[in-house]
Amino acid sequence: MSLPKPAMRGLLGKRLRFHLPIAFALSLITATVFKYSVTEPRKQAYADFYKHYDSAKEFEAMREAGVFQSVRPSGE
């Protein structure tokens, strides 16, 4: 009794027909989960932040704190 020969011809194509759809489906699922668990909340957080952001007020606060070298605080 001898061992059967391994099927080498067409092995890559046979394996790809099985694994390629699985890999494609998993990548779509991963991309969808990432979009709705990371990207969408991040976009919403940016929208909420800039809804009430006042850049002039922020500039004045940084100027008073002495962050800028070329802008003097208003007290001087």
Rank of each mutant, 00 (worst) to 15 (best):
E76M: 11
L3N: 14
A23N: 03
L28A: 06
A31S: 12
E40M: 00
S74K: 02
V67R: 05
M1Q: 15
R72M: 12
S37A: 15
G13M: 13
M62T: 01
E76K: 13
E60G: 10
F68R: 04
Q69S: 13
D48Q: 04
L20D: 03
I29L: 11
L20H: 14
T39G: 04
I22M: 01
S55A: 14
A61S: 05
V67A: 07
F59L: 13
L16V: 04
R72K: 06
E40F: 00
V67L: 14
H19Q: 02
G10R: 04
K5N: 09
P4G: 02
E76T: 14
L16P: 09
A56F: 15
A61F: 14
R72Y: 05
Q69L: 08
V67C: 08
R15Y: 01
D54A: 07
Y46F: 06
F24E: 15
R72L: 15
R9N: 09
A45T: 03
S74Q: 13
A7Y: 03
Y50E: 08
F68C: 04
K51V: 10
F68N: 09
G66M: 15
T39K: 03
R42I: 05
M8K: 07
G10Q: 02
K51P: 07
K35D: 06
I22S: 00
K43T: 06
E60S: 08
V67G: 05
M1D: 15
A47E: 09
F59S: 15
L26T: 14
S37I: 13
R15Q: 02
E64C: 10
S74N: 03
A23R: 13
H19D: 00
E40Y: 01
E40S: 01
Y50G: 15
P6W: 08
K35I: 11
P73R: 13
F68E: 10
G66A: 14
I29Y: 15
P4T: 11
K5Y: 09
S55I: 09
S70P: 05
R17H: 05
F68L: 03
S70I: 09
Y36L: 10
E64T: 12
A7L: 10
F24I: 06
F34Q: 15
A47I: 01
S2R: 08
G66W: 07
R72N: 06
K14M: 04
Q69T: 12
R63G: 10
P41N: 04
P73K: 13
G75E: 08
V67T: 15
T39D: 09
S55Y: 09
I22K: 02
D48C: 00
R17T: 03
M1V: 14
V71F: 07
A61G: 13
F59W: 11
V38S: 01
K35H: 05
G13T: 11
A7N: 06
A7M: 06
R15M: 08
